[in-house]
Design a protein around this nucleic acid. Structure first.
Length: 487
RNA sequence: GCCCUUGUAGCUCAAUUGGCAGAGCAGCUGACUCUUAAUCAGCGGGUUGUAGGUUCGAGUCCUACCGGGGGCACCA
């Protein structure tokens, strides 16, 4: 960079030096009392020729014409954009020289009078102007902006500034998370933090990332779920508990999977999976309203999703019969259907085959939102069985347009059954593929006594996708995983 | 991991059969006190992802590698 500075950067460096020669710090100083730009816009008179208040605004210069003795530009902050006008007559000589050194991309602060231009645009007519941070990088082209996906993801900072809708969508993500917290606060939940480094990667079926602790000389796993620690806390007396946190799964990347993603898991003593359905409806419909102007019906590509409670509920077995055209308990018929779908059957537990057939035939057909309830219990080693029906687990998954958004159970709190399920691997499932990894301490905790409870996990990234009409997960994550860039 | 596709100036894109690497925007110099894709005149800007190969000649064809996108697999 130093021995081979690009000519565009060189031009900016020359201006930077000129600013220093004026005795001005090109990197800026404290600037108090600025209004957010949306607030400034709200204060601007609506009538031509009327002087409004004198205000201070600050932000990034995203349009600039450095010509003549009256110059216009737009500055932008996270609340919006407003035009500024700088007239040579209205500012002192040093400021006018500073104005000559401004480039698109610079951060500036402006004090001036709010009024409309002759063409009716809300404008701050500057009486003072300061630089709050020089930009040395050439911004993207003003009309097309940044379109190269790789550049947008690697240089998210630039993407956030110059690509229409990116910052807005990410702010919606933050508001959705705020809304989830606020809904749970209303339900008297406590938010906690539990370890990310696990000795046993339990609570879900996924390949973990492995890391190493030097001083203890032990390998550890980055967590793949939050479940087992939160249940321990319920044993400890925190009746309603949740965590919003990052989980890590060492798997492929596609439009709905990022190796690290954000989950909320929550547990409610004395509840069950029906309690969780009611809560899921509250959490999701509230969040939908926050980012869709109060509406619970939201656009989703060329479809519309109605998140107005209550959501539909359908039994796993019924959906199976409807879409796979056979009974899930009829092993021969299921095997035939599996063969038809090129799903392997050899040495695999019948319920694993059922599940594969279910995924192949049912899931994509579910537009929803729909709670799929009552799963085959063999695939649910952490879930309570239905009274008198040990082959059915009180579990639901919430599907929206084929996307799994939430997963919940009536929690298994029988330590003897839990221990037995940890010991029994499903045929045809490698241990690393199983959710049932022996965790002796967790069994010990259950022996202390966990109250009957409901619990739920929601994929926050996918929820944000659905509520912001975004089809790829990388567009709702600030910094999705990419292979390292070579400099 | 496999298949398809893609990589040219800061950005967005051209480049005919393999035949002098171009444009717009942005930048620089000058003019302009109501502009907003400002306008007008002039000027500069390239390791065509990287490394090889074929050829008189490669942005273009071939091989490998690197990055991105899409699909498959994985993700019960």
């Amino acid at each position: 960079m130093t021995e081979n500075t690009h000519h565009l950067e060189a031009a900016r460096l020359a201006k930077l030096e000129k600013i220093e020669q004026l005795g001005i710090d090109p990197w800026g100083q404290r600037f108090d009392g600025h209004l957010h730009i949306d607030a400034a816009r709200a204060k601007c008179p609506e009538e031509n020729g009327v002087d409004g208040e004198t205000v201070r605004v600050a932000g990034r210069l995203v349009r600039w014409s450095d010509s003549g003795k009256l110059r216009f530009g737009h500055i932008q902050d996270y609340t919006g954009k407003i035009q500024i006008a700088v007239s040579k007559k209205e500012v002192d000589e040093t400021t006018w020289e500073l104005v000559d050194c401004l480039d698109r991309g610079d951060n500036i602060g402006v004090e001036g009078v709010l009024k409309l231009t002759k063409t009716g645009e809300k404008t701050v007519f500057a009486t003072k102007l300061v630089i709050l941070g020089k930009s040395l990088a050439q911004p993207p082209e003003k009309w097309h902006g940044l379109e190269d996906i790789e550049t947008r993801l690697r240089q998210r900072y630039t993407d956030l500034i110059y690509t229409e809708g990116v910052l807005d969508r990410m702010l919606k993500r933050l508001k959705i998370i705020e809304s989830v917290r606020s809904t749970l606060k209303g339900e008297e939940y406590f938010e906690v933090e539990t370890p990310v480094l696990h000795a046993i990667a339990g609570g879900a079926a996924a390949r973990p990332f492995i890391t190493h602790h030097n001083a203890l000389d032990i390998d550890l796993y980055l967590r793949i779920a939050l479940e087992l620690h939160l249940k321990r806390l319920m044993v400890g007396g925190i009746e309603r508990v949740y965590e919003i946190g990052r989980v890590f799964r060492n798997e492929g990347v596609d439009s709905t999977h990022n190796p690290e993603f954000t989950m909320i898991e929550l547990y409610q003593a004395y509840g069950n999976y029906e309690t969780m359905m009611d809560l899921a409806e509250k959490i999701i419909s509230n969040a939908a309203k926050v980012v869709n102007d109060g509406a619970t019906v939201v656009p989703w590509g060329d479809k519309t999703i109605d998140f107005t409670p209550p959501f539909a509920r359908a039994k796993y077995g019924d959906l199976f019969r409807e879409h796979a055209a056979c009974d899930m308990h009829d092993a021969a018929a299921v095997a035939a259907k599996a063969k038809e779908l090129h799903i392997p059957t050899e040495n695999r537990h019948p319920d694993v085959i059922v599940n594969d057939v279910f995924e192949a035939t049912v899931e994509d057909a579910l537009v929803g939102p729909v709670f799929v309830i009552d799963y085959p219990s063999s695939m649910c080693p952490l879930t309570k069985r239905k009274n008198g029906q040990p082959e059915i687990a009180e579990r639901f998954e919430l599907f929206v347009d084929g996307l799994e958004v939430a997963n919940a159970y009536t929690e298994l709190n029988d330590p003897r059954l839990q221990e037995a399920l940890f010991k029994t691997q499903l045929q045809g499932l490698a241990e690393e593929d199983s959710m049932a990894k022996m965790d002796h301490d967790f069994v010990r905790a259950l022996k202390v006594g966990m109250p009957a409870a409901g619990g739920m996990g929601i994929g926050i990234d996918r929820l944000v996708m659905l509520l912001t009409n975004t089809k790829t997960i990388r567009d709702v994550i600030f910094f999705p995983l990419l292979k390292p860039e070579v400099f």
